[in-house]
Amino acid sequence: MRPLVADIDLDALRHNYQLACRCAPQSRSVAVIKADAYGHGALACAQALEEHAPAFAVACIEEALALRQGGITQPIILLEGIFSADELSLVDTHGFWIAVHTQWQVDTLLAATPRQPIPVWLKVDSGMHRLGFDIDEAAAIWGQLSAAPSVATLHLMSHFATADAHDNHYFSQQMAQLETLARELEAPLCLANSPATLAWPIAHGDWNRPGVMLYGSDPLEVANEITQQLQPVMTLRSEIIALRELEKGEPVGYSGRWRAPRRSLIAVVACGYGDGYDRHAVDGTPVLVNGQRCAIAGKVSMDMLTVDVTDVPGAAIGSEVILWGKASNGEILSVDEVARCCDTISYTLLTGVLPRAPRRYHGRSD
């Protein structure tokens, strides 16, 4: 079988979730597992966390239904709410919680007669300028929802645009608006995403929403002592399938972008953009071969990529190749470092790993 596999370390997932909880011991932490748990497999990750997380969060009702069908019984929050009025019956049937961020969602909820009142998170736009009610209209919406028999618990939520940045100016502006509104409404808060969970205790509310940090990625521009404790959950692992000796000056791959600066040994690795590895990886993007750092040489192809292993003793057909994650010798290559070499972020790499790279789970026991 083709040697490419995405190893998923569920013990590392639990470690990272517990780290999020330790960051904010007075808060409850929703485990965000949208986008198939950032490419890690939503049901498997939910099952690994179901004894720890009081609730899960997803983007849409399809993701929530898949978890219910897999046996997950915890509350599941629809972070973008419903997309059509007829979804509200499914929300009622399955006990989902919903965000509301636009007037038609509010109107639908106010007109509904669910079997049980529905927990609601009112989303306000404090500066992200994406989803949510304007700050100055939030109080009126809050009053409507508070009085509605179709609504159970009510929380105030928002999303930070720059919590990952070292410069906290814009974050502080958003936070000040939200603190003022929360005092006015006496509202419980859900504000903190992964970077705010890790770096901004002022944003820790009744609930936090750790996402990418659960999977071992550091979302901060500047790492801190806490982010250094994150453990990689996905290891994208393959093997060398061929070796080529090149003379100085000979090219490798499409367009001959990379040319050997000396007599070189080039390894062909079973992984390419057809598996989700980013085609924009530049020459020099790091990989681990037998636990030793080396570099991509040449453009990534659909099914293969090429690596300069001239300085890797013992490199041979079948040698272990780590595209990101943890090697057998314990060496770690951060997905964040690989993402920077692709001019992107870890989110796109993790969610972009395609089904052709099978997920292999381990560490199921606590």
Results as ranks from 00 to 15, higher is better:
residue 127 G to V: 10
residue 29 S to H: 12
residue 155 H to I: 05
residue 212 V to I: 05
residue 332 I to P: 00
residue 227 T to E: 06
residue 349 L to P: 00
residue 63 E to S: 05
residue 354 L to A: 09
residue 205 G to S: 08
residue 157 M to G: 14
residue 60 C to N: 08
residue 52 H to R: 13
residue 93 T to C: 07
residue 217 S to K: 03
residue 249 G to Q: 09
residue 53 A to W: 06
residue 95 G to T: 03
residue 192 A to C: 11
residue 328 S to Q: 12
residue 128 M to R: 07
residue 161 A to M: 10
residue 86 D to H: 12
residue 160 F to S: 04
residue 79 L to N: 04
residue 349 L to I: 09
residue 268 V to L: 15
residue 21 C to V: 10
residue 184 E to S: 12
residue 86 D to T: 15
residue 73 T to G: 03
residue 129 H to Q: 01
residue 109 L to Y: 06
residue 189 L to F: 10
residue 225 E to T: 14
residue 135 I to K: 07
residue 249 G to N: 04
residue 277 Y to T: 03
residue 281 A to N: 03
residue 149 P to I: 05
residue 298 G to C: 04
residue 320 E to G: 06
residue 137 E to C: 11
residue 188 P to H: 11
residue 231 Q to T: 02
residue 15 H to I: 08
residue 299 K to L: 12
residue 176 A to K: 13
residue 158 S to M: 08
residue 214 L to A: 04
residue 274 G to H: 03
residue 355 P to W: 12
residue 268 V to T: 14
residue 338 V to Y: 00
residue 300 V to L: 05
residue 120 V to R: 03
residue 196 A to W: 03
residue 326 K to C: 10
residue 164 D to E: 08
residue 145 L to D: 08
residue 44 A to S: 07
residue 239 E to L: 14
residue 25 P to Q: 02
residue 240 I to D: 01
residue 107 D to N: 12
residue 89 S to V: 05
residue 35 A to W: 06
residue 210 P to F: 09
